[in-house]
Design a protein around this nucleic acid. Sequence first.
DNA 1: CGTAATGAAATTTTT
DNA 2: TTTCATTACG
Length: 792
Amino acid sequence: MDVSSNSLTAAQREAVEHIDGPLLILAGPGSGKTRVVTQRIAHLVRQGVPAHQIVGLTFTNKAADEMRSRVETLIGPSRVWLGTFHRFCSRLLRRYASLVGLDENFTIYDSDDSLRMLKRTLEQMDQPPTHFMPEQIRSAISWAKNNLITPQQYEPRQGHALGSAVVRVYPEYQARMRIANAVDFDDLLLHVGTLLRENAELRAELDERYRYILVDEYQDTNLVQYAIARALSIDHPNLAVTGDPDQSIFGWRGANISNILDFQRDYPDVKVVRLEQNYRSSKQILRVADALIVHNQRRKEKRLFTENDEGSPVRLTHYATHREEAQRIADEIAVEIASGRRRPSDFAIFYRINALSRAFEFALRERGIPFQLVKGLEFYQRKEIKDVMSYLHLINNPRDDVALLRVINTPTRGIGKKTILGLTEHATRYGQTLFASAQETGLIEALGKRAATAVGRFVKIVDHLAETASAPVEEIVGRVLSESGYQKSLQESGLEEDESRLANIEELLTVAREFDERFGEEAGLSAFLEETALVNDVDQWEEEIDRVTLMTMHSAKGLEFPVVYIVAAEEGLLPHERSREDPDRLEEERRLLFVGMTRAEEELQLSLATQREFRGQRRRTVPSSFLMELPREQMKVVEPAADWTTGEFEEDEFFDGWEDDDGFDATDEEADENFDESPKEFGGDREEDAEAAEAGRATARQADAKSTLTTAAQLHESREPTAATPKTKSAPPVSPEEFRVGMAVVHPEYGLGKVAALSGSATQRTATVQFVTAGERKFRLQHSALRPARET
DNA sequence: CGTAATGAAATTTTT
DNA sequence: TTTCATTACG
């Protein structure tokens, strides 16, 4: 994007020069939004607005940093507050902690910690067998919090079984969190949200203090965030939000797309500015992305345009295997780099789920191409790091039960299940924390002498460590490592695994040192803990480093790259299978792909593989239904090379099971193994199993008709329409009930298509199918040869 | 009480 | 494939 140019379009200028009153900036991808926002901040300050009255709320720290540095280049260092919602709330909450029953040194639990807390709660509530998995309850609680519903307000939907479990667990969980002086991510927002709602005085005070609020990525805010922004903009309604409904991709986290769609209703005299010109992508890319997104129903009409070059066509490449996909893409990248046309950092590879990164890591590494993997769970989630961090948390907040449980016997000090149970019961009986109980082991009869001594030793270690709590962070970490015996136990174990753990711990020491240097030693332990609690994966991504970027499409939001590869555009993966039933979520998946595509500046390739190995299992794939919504005639479509079978998978190995014409020999064990969509997965009784098995075999046989044919679509393309499989071998009927709108289907004559609509019932049940190449057709399901295009 | 081994299950996206 | 949990054994 052109940052240096001082020229602004009329629309941009309008937004930049707006000062008082609500402002809605509808900004398409690559429309120079960040530039507009930062210029507006600069403009506000230049117009005499005190910098400390301006607050910019972003989604990631990365975005905040970016804005800060841009504002700085415009007006120099200032006291404008820029950061994430969570950080902002955390800051407020530290100051007003006592109002919600917390101490200012509260701990922020990550999702792992809060799940542990929840599990403990469930265990100790001797719940009537709620066979709900803690995960489900956790997400129900999270949902409530995101919607500003406190434990007291929570009301289960009538007859909703999960709800009635939640209605009991939620208050108990919350109470325990308070005892532990801890909050989870959602609490940061919830507590501030309720404070503002219930404390008019405080609300007015803060509204006064933060007069100019700016919310970025507004389409991804949830109800609490909305409520917070709103509460701070009542007396001083200078709320400016930017966003793009088409880029709303966090609905599963409670984000409410209505927040942006209804903004004009909430603030009637809002000024609306639309930024529709794209400065990022080529015309070709933009056109394809637009063709995709128009398939969404719930959206604000928007036409994107660009004055950029036409560019090269968007590619849609069909590989034989996931391996080949990775290898070929890596090859391309290698060639471009070797020729000097591109640098590694020009490239990005996006996928739907992190689990898909491996093949690409491997292929890039093989070629010596530097890359950076932006992935969750990387550093702060590792066991050894969490262990050490838990000591720090315990020092900072002795009430932190989750931390205590984590380290009380790490390294092992002879404190086992029984001892912990004794401590827990004692703590529960007196409504106190585990650490408090640990300090008075003498009073606990259930504990033997040996256990009591062991616990006493642990308490002593923590107490001693706590004395140095005000030292520089690096020093504290160092002491933890030595005094807890953690480091020693790793060194002595001799396990290879522990070698790398030691290395990671070294890394943590470095992080601590850098923190000390960056914020000065007086910043202290609590600041360090807060800092590390609120980082996220994308924050670790470094723009300057010259490496190929590997990340999920979610992480890619807000970034841009000259060349983008979007991989694994396959049914069940790109529209993720968990979104298939719900049309809203399917639209969200489409937006996700849209976001991914619009990250590309010059070149974009979408790809899929016919065969993909996932969770250690080979699977045949079905092309993403989104691919059928793209203007293929404007794109460069590449099908697998004819000789692909000589590649990664040995043909014999893979096709063994259905090689001979007679079909399937039930006694052939190998065949069974190769038969991924085994009868079991279809469920049902034996007869159905047999049918399903036959269906699978039939599809497999079709695929094998010519060994280069691997999908129904290809099957269709290279075959006479009338040359359908012989009747005797065609797939058995499938229940009309199995069909769903949006489902990918196969027809022996028309090939691959997607169910556009369903009507009628029973024998009248009719499907309207949009075929890739054969147009739209209707079928009476009862008699048709239409079949779901399942992975085979 | 601690460790090791075995077996089973589970796998989206993230502040 | 990886991770988790349970169990058996020392």
